[in-house]
Amino acid sequence: MMTLDQDSIHKHSFNITNLEEIPGKKIKHHYGLVSGSVVRSRNIFADWAAGFKSIIGGELPMYTRLLNTTRNEAIQRMIAQAEFMGANAVTNIRFSTSDVAQGAAEIYVYGTAVFVE
C-alpha cells in the first residue's frame, strides 16, 4: 500500500477544507479565489510499465504515486498563494483534472482564501 502524503498538505495550523465554512470559527475576511495548478508528464518507464500491466489489469502504483505528488504540489501552491494574501484557511476546495497533452496531465485545485478566528 502506498503512503499518502497528507502531512505535507496539513503543515502548521493552516486549515483547508471543502466545506463552505470552518466549523466553530468565524470568517473575518474574504480574500477571493486562490488556485494552484501543476502540469506534469509521466516518464516513459512508467508508461511502459503501465502498458505491460494493462495486459493483466490492476492498479498502476507508479501512476498513483505520481498523481499524489502532483496533487500535493498543486495544494502547496494554492496554500502559498493564500498565505501570501494573509489568509489562514482555504474553504470550499474543488479539484479538476485534465489531459492537456499526450502523456501530460494537469491538476488544478481552487478554493476561497479566508481569515478565520
Partner: peptide, 27 residues
Amino acid sequence: VPESHWDQIESARMVVGSVVITPDYFR
C-alpha cells in the same frame, strides 16, 4: 451537526484518496 453544536467539533480537515487502475486486456 447543527450549527449550534459546532463548538463540539475538535477538527475539520480535508482528506484525499486516489487510485489509478487499468482494465486487463480481456475485459
